[in-house]
Design a protein around this nucleic acid. Structure first.
Lengths: 207, 207
DNA sequence: GAAGTAACCTACTTCGAGTAAGGTGAACCG
DNA sequence: CGGTTCACCTTACTCGAAGTAGGTTACTTC
């Protein structure tokens, strides 16, 4: 009768405990929001006491930063994997967009932390981590655009990348909030975006 | 010697005190961030004690909501004023974009509350208020697009509006962060955005 | 099986949001 | 001018959650 209970209360090596804490924290942050999430509750659901969280993550903000950093790595891996094998720039961009939308769709809970900006409240470190996610996407877009628009001014490439990142963010929240007859798939979201921006993008060249 | 001090400590009618509190709160929220802003400090800078803030705004979140609502009204007024006298749809959209960028440029402090999503931390009411700002912009864009693309499917209009709103948000943060040689004006930001989206938008029609 | 260390806990401090209960003073009425 | 009233305002508290000090337990290693 104590077998299952012992499993929940057993001692764990640090790495494993950290993974568990991250998983639980992600869930509770997504469920309650950063502010309303209590460190005591996260600790309790881990079957551990609060000082352990502080031992491993330093602060509540540190725990949030770790969650965001993990999600950021997962997104980077997913998009990188998606773009290999693209036939041309248009195809590469579309594949990247689809991968982004699929990812945020599949990880809604975790991504509400980034998309809904729970981090701003937490403090500068968390806000910086979220900005780093966006910056990473911006860099990827700039590199892609630069490859097929070699003579467009740098500032235009940057602006275009910001447009795409901002649009992705908003579209992601938009289509996730639709159900039933109005439902929109990640692929359709990518198509909508491509339709609006692609012509303008491909015409961007030195005037 | 007490004349100036008396001015700071004088009794005020409710409406005037509320305006003062909003101004001080906006400043402190922008300066420290929502979390780090202490109600005691806001009260002190008003020359008043904390329970007065609670008397007038109910809670810390209520105070933030009031700040956001005020900014939302100002933005709505500024964009509405900008669009009158547009010669065609393209001109109307450009004017609206320029007004948005000029407004966020002029009110950086206040708009960091919206753009950097300080609200998510505060609670559901504040988050809803921020979403309402975005929703208002989306509705305006949809109405504009619908007027000159009467036969485009509704879902495409919505998607396009989300793209524009997301892009505006990101571009606003982007160009505000640039100085010196890299500086970008509100008008240039609007131009960059128009260049990327306009061709695609005007081609949007029933297939 | 003793030493050392990694994992863990109880019990506390601190700080800020929110509140209860009461004081003060200007305006208005008689 | 004396009293009443109501809006403005205060002091002094509670309460909850972040963060911490210092000690305890159990696993590893020789």
């Amino acid at each position: 009768m104590t077998g299952r209970l012992d499993e929940r209360k057993r001692r764990m090596p640090r790495a494993e405990r950290e993974r568990q804490m991250l998983a639980v924290a992600e869930e509770i942050f997504a469920e309650r929001g950063y502010q309303a999430a209590a460190m005591d509750e996260i600790a309790e659901r881990c079957g551990v006491s609060k000082p352990m969280l502080y031992e491993y993550f330093g602060s509540k903000e540190g725990l949030l930063v770790a969650c965001i950093r993990q999600a950021r790595g997962q997104l980077a891996a997913a998009t990188a994997a998606a773009v290999v094998g693209a036939t041309d720039p248009e195809d590469a961009l579309r594949r990247g967009l689809v991968a982004f939308f699929r990812f945020t769709d599949a990880h809604r809970r975790a991504w509400s932390l980034v998309l809904r900006n729970e981090a701003a409240v937490a403090g500068p470190a968390a806000a910086a981590e979220v900005e780093a996610v966006r910056q990473e996407q911006v860099e990827i877009d700039i590199a892609l655009f630069a490859a097929f628009l070699p003579d467009a001014p740098r500032v235009e490439l940057e602006a275009a990348a910001q447009v795409v990142v901002g649009a992705c963010e908003r579209l992601s929240l938009w289509y996730v909030g639709r159900d039933g007859d109005d439902a929109v798939s990640p692929e359709q979201a990518a198509d909508h975006l491509m339709r609006v921006i692609w012509t303008g993008l491909s015409a961007m060249t030195r005037r």
